[in-house]
């Protein structure tokens, strides 16, 4: 008996060691990016690479001088926030109706939209927006990014609406409430945490999305992600600046993802896995 618990203890220790090792592998590249962003330009390309150095904020300070970083950042915020709001406005009532009527096609349609390659939609959008003279406008970016956000909102909210006992709706109906009122006054307040999770996930995915802005934005409406090419072009001579840009671009999604991590996996897997 004692022999078994001894091996169990060793297995437990081995488990911890392997887990720490995995954690180190996972985090090291990111730590390296952040460290490099605080290095002076002659130190960031030093060979052999330096682990210890005098940190500087110079890369962050010069970022807005050497590139229109703040302008791109503003574009990213406009496009991401607007497409998240649009996705919520479209998706929340749709999820409510889908849950109420148990109709499954909205979920399936949005699933297909999630699976098709972005380029498939980008080709006709490009032709459509070119006809409408909308290429390079914020609206073309907001509308296309809502194709990313709306399905996320629907899929995240569906289980939240499904969890509301049907008797709540039935009682409200007996009292003469219309579906509009039930949605606004009863259902929405009951899924408030779902609304927060879906908004945050939609924001993260819209922020991270690369392809649509790559083609549909111009030098004035370019988002940070689409502007990454400029940073890489600059970065061939200035790694510190490149890593500072990368760190700042990664920051909003990483912070937001940490907030919703409890719902993250079930949200990302469209409810296929309970996280």
């Amino acid at each position: 008996m004692t022999e078994v618990s001894e091996t169990d203890r060793w297995m437990g220790r081995l488990n911890t060691v392997l887990l720490i090792l995995a954690g180190v592998i996972v985090i090291t590249p990111t730590v390296w990016m952040i460290l490099s962003s605080f290095k002076f330009s002659h130190e960031v390309t030093a060979y052999p690479p330096k682990l210890f150095f005098t940190p500087t904020l110079a890369n962050y300070a010069t970022l807005s001088e050497t590139t229109p970083f703040l302008h791109y950042g503003f574009n990213s915020i406009v496009v991401t926030a607007s497409s998240t709001a649009l996705g919520m406005l479209l998706g929340a009532p749709a999820a409510f109706v889908a849950s109420w009527t148990r109709i499954t096609w909205p979920a399936i349609v949005t699933l297909v939209a999630r699976m098709a390659p972005g380029t498939l939609f980008l080709l006709p959008w490009y032709v459509m927006f070119r006809h409408a003279g909308m290429i390079g406008s914020y609206w073309s970016l907001i509308l296309t990014h809502a194709v990313i956000t709306m399905p996320i909102v629907i899929w995240v909210l569906l289980p939240f609406f499904d969890n509301i006992p049907r008797s709540v709706f039935e009682a409200a109906q007996v009292d003469g409430c219309s579906p509009f009122r039930i949605f606004r006054r009863i259902a929405l307040p009951l899924v408030s945490s779902g609304l927060a999770v879906s908004a945050i996930l939609a924001f993260v995915f819209s922020w991270n999305y690369f392809l649509f802005a790559l083609v549909l934005s111009n030098s004035d409406t370019k988002t940070l992600i689409a502007a990454s090419f400029n940073f890489i072009g600059e970065g061939s001579t200035n790694w510190g600046g490149l890593m500072a840009a990368a760190t700042l671009i990664a920051l909003p999604p990483l912070i937001l993802a940490t907030i919703v991590q409890r719902w993250l996996i079930s949200g990302l897997t469209l409810g296929a896995v309970k996280g």
């Binding site: 996972v26 390296w32 991270n208 990454s228 999604p253």
Partner: peptide, 22 residues
Amino acid sequence: RSLFISPFMMPPVVAGMMWLVI
């Protein structure tokens, strides 16, 4: 948990920039 979700919640584009340098 946050540590393990950090790679896949960062934009793939940022992962690309980071690995280009590494």
